[in-house]
Amino acid sequence: MHCSGLILTLDRDPVIRATTFECLERWPGLTLGERTEQRVAAALEAEHATAAIAAVEGLRGCPGVVHVDVVFAEVSAPCAAEDSP
């Protein structure tokens, strides 16, 4: 299991933002935390780190998500079997 801390920057149109939250709340492994008007803190759990990268890319494509910054990563289990090069 791999855990990342994210900041999602959202569209400034509140109508679009409402649909964004619907999408985010259904996103597998994503826990939403504190938010300001256009930014929301989140934790993302994924099976392994490669899946976490794919999920971050996927979140970038979520309607109303303008930008995703990753601000925390657990690196204590770097080479789980799924991640071996």
């Binding site: 299991m1 855990c3 990342s4 801390g5 994210l6 900041i7 826990t31 935390g33 504190e34 938010r35 300001t36 930014r39 929301v40 803190a41 989140a42 934790a43 993302l44 759990e45 910054d69 601000v71 925390f72 657990e74």
Partner: peptide, 13 residues
Amino acid sequence: LRASALAAAAATL
């Protein structure tokens, strides 16, 4: 870990 990730993200926010 989830709590740590959320705390770091909230702090950055």
